[in-house]
């Protein structure tokens, strides 16, 4: 049985961003996908949101210093 971890206090909100948003985000920071931090496709936090390798996940962290901090990770095959 798989447990839904998305409501756990330690797990921030993970959302997949659309391809258009992805392009915009990458070009506005002049980044390539290789420069982004990674997240495995098998990660428990993203198994229930249908993703494939190369997708960018937007993570809204609850931060002690900034309130909400946005972080991006690229999905990679483990």
């Amino acid at each position: 049985m798989e447990i839904d971890v998305s409501n756990h206090g330690l797990v921030p909100k993970h959302t997949k961003i659309s391809d258009a948003e992805k392009e915009k985000f990458l070009s506005s920071h002049s980044l390539s996908l290789r420069d982004l931090p990674k997240i495995l496709i098998t990660d428990p936090a993203i198994v229930c949101i249908n993703v494939k390798a190369g997708d960018v996940i937007k993570i809204e962290r609850v931060s002690m210093t900034a309130g909400t901090a946005v972080y991006y990770r690229v999905v990679v095959n483990g």
Binding site: V5, L40, D43, P44, I59, R73
Partner: peptide
Amino acid sequence: TSRTICNDINEVYAVLGIEAARQSIIN
């Protein structure tokens, strides 16, 4: 299930994922 935690970072990583592991390290 929203508050139950453990202090083994590797276990948090396996069960809740990399972001939870990061938060857990900080905590």
